[in-house]
Nucleic acid binder design. Structure first.
Lengths: 109, 109
DNA sequence: AGTTAAATATTGGATGACCGATAGATATAA
DNA sequence: TTATATCTATCGGTCATCCAATATTTAACT
């Protein structure tokens, strides 16, 4: 019945606080509009952020000049600014230092 | 001057919300007391959680019966409960599904 | 006993993440 | 033009994370 995804956020620690990181990382791939971003997150994370979640987050990142949006008809295509690209680079480095050990360990069963 | 660590939380996305995950994961290694947990987190994450952060977190996990504490003199040795062990297992699986791609990509430069 | 240091603990408050509900804007179809 | 669907956006509120400041407990040392 629940045919949306294979994984869901765990009960024991819901890992809030990673949304902005996820958005910025997705935008290193290619510019995207909001709903596409939400869909891409859903595919990886298992739950799709609602409009009330994703748009405030995009607005915040925009105000901090880490991303910029360009309106194209119905959609707004977001892309990284130079500052945003530096930021996500730094964030990825931190992320891997902090959590790399967990990955490595889990991968080997 | 700042000789504590090599990495610090990035400005662009501070990745709050991972503390409980980190604590539970550390306790899969071995039982530990609070300050040891804080030190181990500092070694990986770059910033050491203050007492005002770590003890409320431990208290919360304890109340949710994911960990239990055993007093030994000055220290309280925390270890996973069965429920906690299940929880962190599930959380690691989720974590790797959600973020594995980022990690893999970053590793290959 | 008194002192010191380490570990634990609580409180108050700030911040951010997140969602539900709601509404406006735009393109496409009827 | 009207209807419909999609995308974008805002508002109000809840919850968790986190820290600074402070206090208490315990062990070890003098």
């Amino acid at each position: 019945m629940n045919n949306t995804t294979e994984c869901c956020p765990p009960e024991c620690c819901d890992m809030r606080g990673m949304l902005s990181f996820f958005i910025l990382w997705l935008l290193t791939k290619e510019p995207m509009h909001g709903q596409k971003i939400a869909t891409e997150i859903a595919r990886r994370r298992g739950t799709k952020p609602t409009p009330g979640t994703i748009y405030p987050a995009l607005k915040d990142l925009n105000e901090r000049e880490l991303i910029k949006g360009e309106k194209q008809g119905k959609k707004v295509i977001y892309s990284l600014t130079d500052e945003g690209r530096e930021g996500i680079e730094e964030a990825c480095e931190y992320f891997c230092k902090a959590f790399g050990e967990i990955f490595e360990e889990y991968k080997s069963r």
